[in-house]
Amino acid sequence: MSTMPAPLLSLVDVTRTFGGVQALSGVSLDVAAGRITGVIGPNGAGKTTLFNVITGAYTPTAGEIYLDGARLTGLKPYQIARAGIARTFQNIRLFSSMSVWEHLLVAQRHDGSVFGRLLPAGLARSKAGREAEKALVFFGLEKVRDRPARELPYGTQRKVEMARALTANPRLLLLDEPIAGMSHEEADELRHLLMRLRADGLTILLIEHDMTFVMNLCDRIHVLDFGRQIAHGTPEAVRTDPAVLDAYLGADT
């Protein structure tokens, strides 16, 4: 881990203000390709704002964002998604009218022709069907394939969100608190799945409160507090960083 690969995602001095409040101020960070990078910080540190700025849900007030050298700043959310960034949500955002299977089709791009859009997607032999099947098997969702996604247990819903994000065939996967609401067993299982994805070359950026999970999984960690980056480095370095300890102790009392 001494030499980090080239960054896939780069944030350069990104600031986002809401009214007078700086939700992010001058955040610069690199997400190394093929690695798992963690973002931690107390509540209100700006972690979810960071995701919203990366995905284009909010445009940065200042600063630049690059994906593999291409400028993302100012692109529309669907353009950023198509450039290769997929995400999940801290508060699960599944569609109530759709089964698990349909969720695995909705993020997939079709060939763009009018007739392609009007054909029933997700037929077993189509490309979309194969991609969906792969995600279904990877997350072990075969048994709930045709169930309405919103009726499933919380941990399973999180998996559906991740599977949906993966079917978009992203280069960078953003996970917002992926194990919130999961049991220890489920979290451990997920950790192994994420390690398999990393082994396959996927780049992952995740927000998580569970320190054990983050420390055991991430190659590199960035720490935010009040919208500023106060530390970054390997899990070992961050764990013992006085600024980090201070931020967490300060926030918890």
């Binding site: 959310p77 998604a81 791009r109 079709h110």
Partner: peptide, 20 residues
């Protein structure tokens, strides 16, 4: 595909956009 996109946008336009 079109119908699924219509339903996704109807239910949550922001999430649909983030899915491409």
């Amino acid at each position: 595909t079109l119908g699924r996109a219509l339903r996704a946008v109807a239910e949550n336009r922001d999430v649909a956009r983030l899915l491409g």
